[in-house]
């Protein structure tokens, strides 16, 4: 019988259900929604490929091929920390549902000499 007060209280209050997707809810500032790539600065150093725990990147430096599979990505942010040129970023907005899963492919002219980023052994 201890529930009676709670239950009647609920009846006269507004429901707490969130009406997703009819009502959009602003994501939190630090939500890890999806990975966004800005390939203009990319130097094909493959740091992201090495750090990614999910194997979402596939980079063929000689062919200038950069593949990213957003549906393998677990949005952990390891690649963002690894990237020396800051071309990767985690956006707070969630990935939208899609009808077809597609790998993102870029063709990039590799720079003449590529140097892997050196430094402390941080993940």
């Amino acid at each position: 019988m201890q529930m009676l007060a709670t239950v009647l209280n609920n009846l006269f209050k507004r429901p707490v259900t969130r009406e997703y997707p009819y009502r959009y809810r602003e994501p939190f500032r630090s939500s890890k929604g999806r990975l966004v790539l800005d390939m203009r600065e990319c130097i094909m150093c493959t740091a992201c490929e090495k750090r990614c725990p999910a194997g979402a990147f596939e980079i063929k430096r000689k062919e200038g091929l950069f593949k990213f599979d957003p549906y393998s990505c677990v949005v952990c942010g390891a690649c963002v920390e690894a990237c020396p040129k800051k071309c990767l970023d985690v956006d707070s907005d969630w990935r939208k549902p899609v009808g077809e899963m597609r790998t993102e492919i870029w063709h990039i002219e590799p720079p003449a000499k590529v140097k892997s980023p050196a430094g402390a052994e941080t993940p």
Binding site: F28, S30, K32, V74, G77, E81, P123
Partner: peptide, 24 residues
Amino acid sequence: LDMQEAGGGGRVILSTCTIGGMRK
């Protein structure tokens, strides 16, 4: 869960703990 998302970035899987400390 909202607290976790606001502080860690994910509802249940936060990925904030790392070797040597925290990431956020």
